[in-house]
């Protein structure tokens, strides 16, 4: 969809990632079918080297500030360096199940 495309384009431009996966997880949440409200992004980039975890997440949130102010209601972030990614063998933690509370 258009939101996923915009997220992909902005993250590509901001981080030049080796790996970029933008997953629309909206279907597992309490929102209409076809929504683009809940996303998980997996980013592996040299740009994260020597950047603390909290700051990495802040950088991603900033790159997607427009989306987060608008249609995107939940954003799960995995931000690793290529070395950390290799060590984790590409494992990504699952997102928690929806408990139905938010309709936004």
């Amino acid at each position: 969809g258009p939101v996923a495309a915009s997220i992909t384009a902005k993250l590509e431009a901001a981080f030049k990632p080796d790996v970029l996966d933008v997953v629309n997880e909206s279907a597992s949440h309490n929102v209409p079918r076809g929504s683009e409200s809940h996303f998980k992004v997996v980013l592996v980039a040299h740009a994260f080297a020597s950047v603390p975890l909290l700051e990495r997440h802040r950088l991603v949130n900033e790159a997607l500030a427009d989306e987060l102010k608008g249609p995107v209601h939940a954003l799960s972030i995995v931000a690793k360096t290529p070395a950390q990614w290799a060590k984790a063998s590409g494992a990504v933690p699952p997102s928690p199940p929806c408990l139905g509370g938010s309709k936004a």
């Binding site: 939940a74 799960s76 997102s95 928690p96 199940p97 929806c98 408990l99 139905g100 509370g101 938010s102």
Partner: peptide, 15 residues
């Protein structure tokens, strides 16, 4: 969080 400790209203808050 969204909800309370006993009744979280969102999966992220529950985690």
């Amino acid at each position: 969080m969204k909800g309370s400790k006993l009744f979280p209203q969102c999966g992220f808050s529950n985690t």
